[in-house]
């Protein structure tokens, strides 16, 4: 996993932060990663593997989108996919953006947030579900 961490170049920035092209991926604590802006160390996003919520999670990326985001598409074995967590009023109410995952090319150290237009996945999927008063991941291991 250490090979995944470190600074990535986002040639187009991130939606909402278009001019910020360098972000550093850090491991926080299972299952969370942090993506810290190199331009401003006080700004970060928390990330999780989308499979924590939906397993399997499918990535639908058109050749046009790959070309725009990466030039040449990354090799499948070099791709790391993580989704942005929005921590709401409480951590238990957090949601995960499955519509637009962040795709990392761990070999070439480039990354992009890819907008999936298949309509299959929501912008705000609950990170946990409530059942018997207990919060737990939605689809772990399925």
């Amino acid at each position: 996993m250490d090979a995944w961490l470190g600074v990535y170049e986002f040639p187009h920035g991130l939606p909402g932060f278009p001019g910020w092209t360098r972000w550093r991926l850090e491991f926080l604590e299972a299952p969370f990663f942090l993506l810290v802006a190199e331009e401003d160390e006080r700004i970060a996003l928390s990330l999780v593997a989308p499979e924590l919520v939906v397993n399997p999670y499918r990535l639908h990326v058109s050749p046009e989108t790959w070309a725009h985001a990466f030039g040449d598409p990354p090799r499948p074995e070099d791709v790391l996919v993580l989704a942005v967590v929005a921590v709401r009023d409480s951590v238990a109410a957090s949601t995960v953006n499955l519509l637009a995952p962040i795709v990392f090319d761990v070999l070439r150290r480039r990354a992009a947030q890819i907008l999936q237009e298949s309509g299959e996945y929501p912008l705000r999927a609950p990170l946990f579900r409530e059942e018997d008063g207990r919060a737990r991941p939605l689809a772990q291991g399925r």
């Binding site: 932060f17 700004i43 921590v87 947030q113």
Partner: peptide
């Protein structure tokens, strides 16, 4: 759709120290 993702990113950003503490 692009604006919704941008809004969601802005809402999801926080101080890394705060996120470390929360999570």
């Amino acid at each position: 759709l692009l604006e919704a993702v941008a809004d969601e990113n802005r809402a999801a950003t926080a101080d890394p120290a705060e996120l470390r503490g929360l999570l």
